[in-house]
């Protein structure tokens, strides 16, 4: 599904965010990316979305070498993956339904497809009843669920979440992670960058730990810290 070979990222100011990273993530896996603030988690995710270019190395997503992708092919890469962020990134002047539908609209989906898929996505995150509300009227956890529905509405095979629970209390965080786990059980590959020790320890999933741009640990059923 995802393969990084000798990937490095050095920013224009000379800061080395990732050093010669190698990793392989198989279809259907659930992977936590952990590491201290500034260790390079978001940078890694941006490379996968092609929001950043690696300084060197090769990144393959879904059998495609995305380092060689042309600019006009990037949108189609992004449609094949859902992305969720810490700050939800919802449009405040659009309802829950419209926010989710927006992700389909920009791919020029038909009104019929939109009418069919949006309610399915909303029911997956348990927000069918709130589809007419605006983001301001929702709790943080609910807003994050809207953004997850938006990420899933185009049926991606990969969902990337960059600290999706960063702004949520523990209970809501668990809601979100359980939901991600459900998506995973239905076959979606999940990559989640997080600081949340409790969740990582509780889920017993694969953990890739990054420190100063290096992978320092990669365990099949790992915890947040090395057996602390």
């Amino acid at each position: 599904m995802i393969e990084l070979t000798n990937v490095s990222k050095t920013f224009q100011d000379g800061h080395k965010a990732l050093n010669d990273i190698n990793m392989f993530i198989d279809r259907g896996e659930f992977v936590f990316i952990v590491g201290q603030s500034g260790s390079g988690k978001s940078t890694l995710i941006k490379l996968l979305m092609k929001e950043l270019e690696p300084t060197s190395g090769k990144i393959v997503v879904d059998g495609k070498n995305i380092t060689k992708l042309k600019r006009r092919e990037i949108p189609y890469l992004r449609r094949s993956m859902g992305v969720v962020f810490q700050d939800f990134r919802l449009l405040q002047d659009k309802t829950v339904y419209e926010n989710v539908a927006f992700a389909m609209q920009v791919t020029e989906a038909s009104a019929r497809e939109i009418r069919r898929q949006v309610p399915i996505a909303l029911s997956m995150v348990g927000l069918s009843k709130k589809s007419g509300l605006y983001p301001k009227q929702l709790s943080g956890g609910e807003q994050q669920r809207v953004s997850m529905a938006r990420a899933m509405v185009n049926g991606p095979s990969l969902l990337i979440a960059d600290e999706p629970t960063g702004n949520l209390d523990p209970e809501m965080s668990w809601d979100i992670v359980k939901m991600l786990n459900e998506f995973n059980q239905r076959g979606t590959t999940i990559i989640m960058a997080t600081h949340d020790r409790e969740i990582v320890n509780g889920m017993k999933k694969r953990v890739i730990a990054i420190e100063n741009g290096d992978i320092i640990r990669d365990e099949k059923r790992g915890g947040y810290c090395n057996e602390a």
Partner: peptide, 10 residues
């Protein structure tokens, strides 16, 4: 920004 990461073309 949102349009771009959900895959809107330029």
């Amino acid at each position: 920004g949102i349009m771009k990461f959900v895959g809107a073309t330029d």
